[in-house]
């Protein structure tokens, strides 16, 4: 047992119970969990996110330090690896795109095995696969939820829903993304719990967001497929939130919804203070977002300052006689 994940799990359960209890108490508490906290969370998120990115941007990039993962640009008869070792802005854009959209570096994990006399290579794809599954499911879920915040619903949302519901099973139709989000988060969690190496490096701050997201996915799935909450009322409420005319709709919405909303609020507010900022940070990583052209184009360091050096004159003063004796040219005879 590990205090890191137990405490995270406990925290998420307690948060869930608080929201549930609040929703059951009605009145003021519904306003608190349904209006006040979501607004506060979004505010914290926006200000926190901007603040964090501004804070990063405030620190300069004094040196051009890309990790070069392929052949450099050199003579024209040597084929350059234009994406893994970009020397142009376009190359960098493609490298970043592949990094952000396909998690290219994670994909680099390979393993060798010797079979008889031959070497065989295989991809170690589990981490990559779980990560892709998790992030893309999350994205799909977020986009689907825009339905609750737009009127009329923009064209791409039904489109995504159609793709997501391609299995055409169940009523309401199962969305794959909900399930894969839950599965992805669970697998990433299991990885942390079960692999000793990963377990050793994991902190409460690694478990907490996973439990929180599992909680969000779980409550979401429960509402959609099992307890069947009143979607019309929820939309009335969420539209009220976005149009800045918040209100709690008449009639019951269900405690689960408040738990769901509270979890989301916590997650959103938590992002700027946590490792979840990697979503913004990946764009600013100097080993990835710079071209490897520092010998061709001078990179400027804004805080470059003069330093004490040992000049040639000082050097010659030290050794002049010996230099003359050895027949080495000197400045001052």
């Amino acid at each position: 047992m590990n205090v890191n994940y137990l405490s995270s799990l406990a925290a998420v359960i307690i948060l869930g119970l608080i929201a549930y209890a609040g929703a059951q108490s009605g009145g003021f508490y519904q306003v608190l969990f349904g209006i006040f906290i979501p607004y506060l969370a979004v505010l914290v998120f926006i200000l926190g996110f901007i603040n964090r990115v501004m804070d990063w941007a405030k620190s300069p990039v004094p040196f051009r330090i890309p990790s070069t993962c392929g052949q450099q640009q050199s003579m024209e008869w040597i084929k350059q690896s234009k994406i893994d070792n970009p020397s142009t802005f376009i190359g960098v854009v493609i490298r970043m795109f592949l990094e952000i959209v396909l998690f290219r570096s994670l994909f680099r994990n390979s393993r060798v095995e010797i079979r008889g006399d031959r070497l065989s290579y295989k991809w170690v794809i589990w981490l990559w696969l779980f990560a892709i599954m998790f992030h893309y499911s999350f994205l799909a879920v977020v986009i689907r939820h825009l339905r609750f915040f737009t009127e009329p619903v923009p064209f791409f949302i039904p489109l995504i829903e159609k793709v997501d519901g391609i299995l055409q099973v169940g009523l309401p139709i199962y969305y794959i993304s909900g399930l894969t989000l839950l599965a992805g988060a669970t697998l990433l969690l299991l990885r942390r719990v079960l692999i000793p190496k990963i377990n050793y490096i994991s902190q409460a701050a690694d478990y907490f967001p996973l439990f929180l997201i599992i909680g969000i996915a779980f409550t979401g799935i429960m509402m959609r497929y099992f307890t069947k909450v009143d979607v019309v009322r929820i939309k009335e409420m969420t539209m009220g939130l976005v149009t800045l005319h918040p209100g709690i709709p008449e009639g019951p919405i269900g405690g689960l919804f408040y738990v769901h909303l509270f979890f989301v609020s916590i997650l959103v507010a938590y992002i700027p203070f946590s490792k979840l900022m990697h979503m913004g940070g990946v764009f600013l990583s100097p080993t990835r977002n710079l071209a490897n052209n520092s010998r061709a184009k001078r990179h400027i360091n804004p805080w470059n300052y003069p330093v004490k050096v040992h000049t040639y004159e000082e050097y010659e003063d030290d050794f002049r006689e010996k230099m003359i004796e050895a027949g080495l040219p000197v400045e001052k005879e």
Binding site: R52, W56, S59, P60, K275, G281, L284, P286, W303
Partner: peptide, 23 residues
């Protein structure tokens, strides 16, 4: 150094401890 190097500041903040580097 945090004020001088974006690399340091960003690297301090964004590691998710995925373990890809571990071995």
């Amino acid at each position: 150094r945090l004020d001088k190097y974006r690399s340091l500041k960003v690297f301090m903040d964004i590691c998710v401890r995925c373990g890809a580097c571990a071995d």
